[in-house]
Structure formats: C-alpha cells, structure tokens
Design a protein around this nucleic acid. Structure first.
Lengths: 218, 218
DNA sequence: TATATTTGTTAGACATGCCTAACTAAATTA
DNA sequence: TAATTTAGTTAGGCATGTCTAACAAATATA
C-alpha cells in the first residue's frame, strides 16, 4: 500500500531526478522545498521510503528512486496527466485550472478506472500542458518540443503548450485563433526584431518574438 | 475544512437518519458498524463533529445531523452518485463496480468539477442504483420506486435499479434483455405463484415472483 | 424489581505525517 | 586551511484517526 503522502514524495523525486537527463539525484532540502514541508519532515519520510525499497540513499548522501519506486512514480504521473486531459477536454477546465484538481484525482486507486479513462480519451499522447502521458507499461514517449520562435519559414507545426500560463497571455493566444493542437504555419520572420508572420486556420497574424518564445510546438 | 474521515461519518449519519422517514436518530454502535470502526472510535469522532456543529447529541443520547451537517452530507452523496453515473455511463463500469471507486472520488474537493461533471452527464436524476442525485441546491427529488411485482397488469414501467446486486442475478437480468432504463410491460400475472409475463423490447418472458421483487421500477 | 445484556464512554496506546529547535556534516569562500 | 554558510539529521512534540481494555449507563428479561 502506498499512502497519498508517499505518492507525493515519489512523484516529486521523479521530477527532480528524471525530468532532466543531466540531473539524476536529488537532495533533502530540494525535495522538502518542492513539497512545501520542512527538511526534517522530508528526511523522516525518506527513511520510510528507503525502508520500503522505493528510494536509495545513505545518510548525508544523494537521493534517487529505485526501479520499483520509479514504476510507482510514473504510474502517478500517468494518472495525473490523464485526469488533466479529461478535465481540459471534457469538463471545460482551462489550462491553469486542471493541475490543482488533478493533484487530488491522481491518488484514486483503481486499475480499471485508469484504463477506461485512457480509452475514453482515445489514448492521448500529451496532456494540456504538452507533457507526454506514460502508457500502461510505463513507457514515456519523449517529445522534443520547440518554441515557435525556432521553427523554420514555411514549415507547419502544432501547438502543444504555452510557457506563460497567465490568463492575459492565454486570452491573447485565444484571440490569435490558437488552441491546443492548432496547426500553425510560419510564413515569414523579420530578422531585425524576431517577429513572425503566422497563419492559423487561414488567418494571418503577426506576433512578437517574445510571444513566439512562449508557444511550445511539435 | 472537512477531512475525508469526517465526510464518511457525515454520510453514514445521513443514511442512518434520513433514508427512512421513520428513523431520524442513530446510535454509536450502529454508526461504528456502518463505518467498520469500533464504537470507541465513533464516539471519539462524534465529539469532534459535535464540536464543529455538524452533529447534535448528548452523552448516552441519540445522534442526529444538524442542518449544517446535513448540507455537507448531501453534497457528498451528490458527488458519490454523480461519479457512479459517470463510471457507469462513460467508463463501462458495471453496477457492482461503481460503488468502491465512487467512495474515493466523492472526496475530491472542487466546486467546478462537480458542476461540470453534472453538466457533462446532462443533469442525471438517478444514479446506476436508481437512487436520486441531489441537485446543486441540495434538493433531493424523492422517487417512489416500486418493485416490478407491484405493477398492475398492462402497465409499462422503467427499470431503475435492482435489489440483488449479485453477479449471477445481474447476468440473469441481462439475459432477459433488461438494462437500466429498460421499458418493461406487464402482460399478465399468475396468481397461484405470483409469476409474471413481461415484455421487453418486443420480447416476452416469464419471471418468478422473487425475480419481480428484486427489480425496482418507476 | 433484580439481574443480565446491550449500548455507550473513557483512558491509554499507537501509526502517520507534520512541526520546531538543536545539532552535525559537507561545501564554499575568504 | 580555517571560518562561515548551507545542507542534512535527530530529538521531541502535536493532531488525526484508529485500536483495546475497562467501565458505566440504559435496556431487556427472568
């Protein structure tokens, strides 16, 4: 049995040690910070997680997930991202509202629920933030996302996420006719300021370099 | 803030004191029984719930919900039944599988989630067990359900629930061509054994009195 | 009504998960 | 390298929600 608190620690450790390939170990303070607890509390939990075989660390040493621990963490992330997708696609939640509720839903225990939810959503590959959703085997199809600013002229790409989640930016994005999965064609670029001409649904717009740098595409 | 444990007590008290009009008070042992805890534990929690103003009781006296407590309980039941409906209608769960998962989902805190879920399900009035779903104001549209055995000859009714949730009974029900919301026409009744002739989707069947008494209809 | 049974309460213990305060080890920098 | 800063640990405490064992009150029954 994995408690909700334990699940949160495993998930945080996964993000600290597997999101960036160069960084495969974490520290107590860092972990405590991410979970909004004191280092003492994190240290305490770490002992339990080690005891259960989900985390490997030695006193004053670096922390990492064991294979078992990683499997659990990925399963939680899978659930989190499937729920986010559900909230966004079916229940009219916005990009910035999904996370908080998914934090709760990710702890629901039911294998069938996750399988059926995934099927109901038609096996989505990315969540509303553009992050990959692990499949049932725990495999994560890593997606090399770029910012729109990096896309070459005359190429077409798909919007998968935004970096800036402020509602003012989101409103602007919507005004451009953009939404998740929108196809964007890069018509041209002005070198002196980096601004771009784009086409979305046959509508042409001009956007600043800054805006382009906040749009993540595949 | 209401903890999950507290929510479970409120819900149990609602069922003990409001499901049957004649019974408006509960006892410690009864409550403990329903929640699968010891009477000592229930007694302990009761003090906290009284403290918070959700339950009224005096030492060695009977227990009942206050108006505040009832509002909370109804909201939990509303969530439970909406989730059951979601699992049944959208995620291919069977009648007997929905309850366990809904027990977890009912504790998710998000007003928007409940509102949107209700809308997504098109404002259902009854859950897969035929129980009424309270609306957002907490109003419960009580439905006077009857067993099929009570329906007069030549009348047509709608199946809303089964009393016996065993999978063997459910399988038999399915074999009769019945599902939730199926229309059943009572063709006739044999008085000597109470068995009935019914018609479902133009198919006639004969069922025993016992079976008819386990089918709840509106 | 006196006794037995059922129902409800109290006291004390324990696990989980959090905290603060005091301390120790490791890393940085002067 | 010695001093300072940062990172990590330990000890002890607390709230929540559970338990068992012992007891008290209310109810049922002989």
């Amino acid at each position: 049995m994995v408690s909700q608190a334990e699940e949160n620690y495993l998930k945080a450790l996964f993000h600290l040690t597997s999101d960036i390939p160069e960084k495969t170990e974490a520290g107590t303070n860092e972990l405590a910070d991410m979970l909004d607890v004191t280092p003492a509390t994190a240290n305490n939990m770490l002992k339990k997680l080690k005891e259960k075989g989900w985390v490997s660390y030695e006193k004053y040493g670096k922390i990492s997930l064991t294979d078992k621990g990683r499997v659990l963490a990925v399963e939680i992330i899978r659930k989190h991202r499937l729920w986010e997708t559900f909230l966004y696609e079916k229940l009219n939640f916005t990009w910035d509202e999904v996370h908080e509720v998914a934090e709760q839903l990710e702890h629901i225990q039911s294998v069938k629920l996750v399988q059926q939810l995934e099927k109901f959503l038609d096996f989505p590959e990315i969540d509303p933030h553009g992050d990959p959703i692990p499949n049932e085997k725990g495999e994560i199809r890593f997606i090399k996302r770029k910012t729109l600013a990096e896309i070459e002229e005359s190429k077409t790409c798909k919007l998968v996420a935004v970096k800036d989640n402020s509602s003012s930016f989101l409103q602007y994005v919507v005004k451009l006719g953009l939404g998740l999965s929108s196809k964007i064609k890069v018509l041209g670029r002005r070198e002196f300021d980096g601004s771009m001409e784009i086409e979305v649904n046959k509508v042409r717009s001009s956007i600043s370099k800054k805006v382009a740098q906040n749009l993540l595409v595949v």
